[in-house]
Amino acid sequence: MEIHSTTSTVTVVRLVVDGRLDAEAAPALRDAIAAHIERGVVNLVVDLTSISFVDSAGLAALVSGMKRSRQAGGDLQLVRPTSTAAFRVFELTQFDQIFRFVDPT
């Protein structure tokens, strides 16, 4: 038996978002996520810790990014918002069961 050991480094980009993630702000986040994936960075963490509001347009930017990153072999994970109100849209749409949430670092 031969054992081969290799080391690989997975690049993870962390995007920290604050304020409101609504229809006004969502296009900028969607474009930022898309730009990273197009450059080959398919593992992303979007840190929503300090976000105060998320609506379905903001959610759409995250879902779009998650789908694109998973299709490219990666994933888009989230740091859960501290605000209960900001997390509400994930619960109402059950995307709290679809996104993978990670601890803040």
Partner: peptide, 15 residues
């Protein structure tokens, strides 16, 4: 099923 858009009315109905 999972889709990017189309959740607005669902959210309104639930709230």
């Amino acid at each position: 099923e999972i889709q990017v858009h189309g959740y607005g009315l669902m959210i309104i109905r639930k709230l």
